[in-house]
Amino acid sequence: MTGNGLPPETEITLLLCGGFSATRRDEPATPLNVGEFNNLADALTSHGFSLLDLLDHTRQEAIRSDPATAALLTPRIETLLTRGTAMAMAAERWNSLGFWVIDRTSSRYPERFREHLGASAPPLLYGAGDTELLNRDQPRVAVVGSREIDTDGEAFARTVGATSARIGALTVSGGARGADRTAIDGALEAGGEAIAILPGALQQVATSRAYRSMVSEGQLTLISPYHPGAKFTAGNAMGRNRLIYCLADLAIVVESAKESGGTWAGATETINAGWVPVGVRQTSNPSAGNQALIDLGAVPITPDTVSSPDAFQTWFDTTTSSHRPPEPSPASQQIRLLD
C-alpha cells in the first residue's frame, strides 16, 4: 500500500467488506461478510460482469439497467458503494501510520489461507511490518494457549519461541496476553522472527513501545482480518483463531480448558479439519483440557523436547511428515473470482 493508492481489487473489497471506523455505530450499512461477498462476485460473474465494474460509473449503470443484475445492487450494497471518501481517508491514515491492507488476490496474501480456507479465507488482511514473512519458505510453529497460564506454562511457551528461532522456524501466535505474547517474546529475544495474528487493536500493538522497533526492523509482522482501528472483541478473537493454525506447519497448545474457550475451539476445529497437526504440552500431571486434546488425536510434547533444538527438530519433522493433509478445499477455486 505504498505509492499510488490501492489496486482496484483491494479497493472494491474494502468498499464492500471493510470497516473504517473505530465505532461500528457510525456505519449506516453493515459491510458484507465473506459469504455475501462471494455470492455477489459469483452472481456478477455469471452475468458477464465483475466486481471491478462496480468501480466505474458507466459500468455501474449497465449493471443497474440490466434486468438480470439490477436486483443484485440492493440498497445496502448501494450504500456501501458510496463510501469512497470514507475509504480513502481511512486508507490514507492507515498507510501513513505504517499499515498495509491486502486482498485475496494479492501476491502477498498468505498462500496457506487460500489453500486451507478457500472461499472462506478473509477477504482482507491488514498489517504492519514486513509482508515477505507471510509467504516465506520457512518452517512455522504456531503457539496457542489461554491467557491465564502458570509459570511452567509460561516457561514452556517462551522456550517454544526460542527453540523455534534456533532451528530457523518462524513463530506464529495470537498476540494476546499469556501464552501468545510469551512465545513471541521468546522468539524475538532469541533473534528469531514472528507473526502475530491479532483480533483487533492492531494500531495499539504496533505503536506500543515493546513491539514498535521489532516491527520496523522486520523481526515481527502483525496481521489482522480487522482494520487497524478496530477494537479487540472476544468475537473477533474466535474468528481469527483458525488463521493462526492455518498459517503454520504445526501448532502447539500450551494450555487449554476442556470444552470451553477459544483455545479448545480452535484446536478441535483444526484437528477435525486436519489443516495442520496439533501438538499439546505434556506434563506429569496434565490439565483436563490438554489430556482431552491428546485423546482427540493431538500429539503430546514434553518440556524436555522443546528445550533441546535437536529433539525439537526431530519432533517437528516426525509430526509434520506423519500428518495427512486434507483434500484441497473445493471452494478454493472461487477465490480467483477477482482475477
Binding site: G5, G84, M87, A88, M89, E92
Partner: peptide, 14 residues
C-alpha cells in the same frame, strides 16, 4: 499533502 494522498486512495466512484 494529506489531501493529495487521500485523492490517491479515492476510488473512481467519487
Amino acid at each position: 499533502r494529506r489531501i493529495g494522498r487521500i485523492l490517491q486512495y479515492l476510488p473512481n466512484t467519487v
